[in-house]
């Protein structure tokens, strides 16, 4: 299935990727090829097949409710470019 520039803009927005006007054509072209590839699956009869979410047939292991992590704020925040008073800074959040 061919994608249109509007589709590409929409999914780029969902994925929070800036795509400039001169890049759109290339994305339309290549993403359409990829969608064509995966569209092969539409021909497969999968009636009654249980979807496989995971390669292993295991169930979730549970962790005991214990506090095992210490405060490492200083270490963690060394990786952040904008921190004030222990808070990560971002442009204003509007509810």
């Amino acid at each position: 299935m061919a994608l249109y520039p509007t589709d590409v803009r929409q999914i780029a927005h969902l994925a929070r990727l800036e795509v400039s006007d001169d890049e759109i054509a290339d994305y339309v072209d290549k993403l359409s090829q990829i969608i064509d590839l995966v569209d092969q699956l539409q021909q497969v009869d999968t009636g009654g097949v249980v979807p496989m979410a995971h390669p292993l047939d295991m169930s979730q292991r549970l962790r005991a409710d214990e506090v095992s992590e210490e405060n490492q704020r200083e270490l963690f925040q060394r990786n952040a470019s904008a921190v004030t008073d222990g808070l990560y800074r971002v442009p204003k959040v509007i509810d």
Partner: peptide, 27 residues
């Protein structure tokens, strides 16, 4: 970026069953 966009597309509203669920079945 192409892979991120492909992924966002196949999971997006209206396409999940046709792509993601289908792929899990073929898997």
């Amino acid at each position: 970026k192409r892979r991120i966009m492909t992924g966002a597309y196949v999971l997006s509203a209206g396409y999940y069953d046709a792509y993601y669920l289908k792929a899990q079945q073929v898997r």
